[in-house]
Nucleic acid binder design. Structure first.
Lengths: 164, 164
DNA sequence: TATTGTTATACTCTATAACTATA
DNA sequence: TATAGTTATAGAGTATAACAATA
């Protein structure tokens, strides 16, 4: 059998062309890469993505029960415990007993938590800029609008905010 | 302390607005959801995403060494072993010894593998249509072009194909 | 010495069930 | 009986190191 059949293309480091036809494939790939970059950036604050999400939710809604945190951040309630534990130990959030329902722990943002959130925003902005570097301003707005419409179509939690 | 402070917003199931400002956040969220849907669809064929990637690469490049498969699909070489094992057991791919280099195993697509790839394409097309449902044809092209440019900017493996 | 394929291990993220204390 | 919080466990995906055979 001819050896030529087994030669490996020296320029073989290419993604299969038929996968690139799917926007879904590009979304999944870029989404993973983006998540990786955000995670890496937040590591400078000693925080994970979900910590950032919780800080953001607390800043916008004030005292929130852990169940509401889970829904807003899109994770299971069983994970919120460790996440809030970490924020509390770092002095970024506090748990308070809700006098109206002793089962409930209202979580609040501390002043230090607010400052940490601001720093997270700066880190996220840097990642965003690097990610969208090849696009001009109009294209970035176009991309954002398209992504937001898709997200809102598949998840009601995005729709309410998207309408504004 | 006033109980009102602790009341949970009945409409709290909303994503933090400041996170939605980041296209990167939307990319990560949509990317994860898309991956989940693709994975679920491919399960009908008993395959995972990486199996699909390998089948696609084999169809486009013919006999390929496992190292080249790893680069093309974007995974570590140590994972290729089990993936190709599964494809071989399912009769979708074959390993042949490369007479030119006895270390190398050239992987080829079988006729059944080609048929399985075609079915995967159908499944992927269905997922893609559902995902992009809220966009019209022109918007889908626009989104795809933007995503491809971002991907090509950050990964040379996408650039070569994107130029076509 | 470098490369191909292989095996093994660990770590993160995610999903799920089960338990307690309150309502 | 249902809910809020908690604990524990298991799985998939990913990353890494180490090894044998061959170049």
């Amino acid at each position: 059998m001819a050896t030529i059949l087994f030669l490996v293309d020296p320029c073989a480091a290419q993604v299969p062309a038929r996968l690139l036809r799917w926007s879904g494939f590009l979304l999944a790939r870029l989404g993973f890469e983006t998540k990786r970059r955000f995670t890496e950036a937040l590591d400078h604050e000693g925080l994970r993505l979900h910590h950032y999400g919780i800080l953001a939710l607390l800043a916008e809604r004030g005292p929130v029960a852990q169940t509401a945190l889970a829904e807003g951040v899109g994770i299971d309630g069983s994970h919120v415990v460790a996440l809030v534990d970490a924020l509390e130990e770092a002095g970024l959030a506090e748990r308070r007993a809700d006098p109206a329902d002793r089962r409930r722990h209202a979580v609040t943002l501390t002043r230090a938590g607010r400052a940490a959130l601001d720093r997270c925003e700066q880190l996220a902005a840097t990642v965003e800029a690097e990610l969208l570097a090849p696009l001009d301003e109009a294209e970035r707005r176009e991309l954002h609008e398209l992504l937001l419409r898709i997200a809102a179509h598949h998840d009601a939690r995005f729709a309410a905010v998207a309408e504004r």
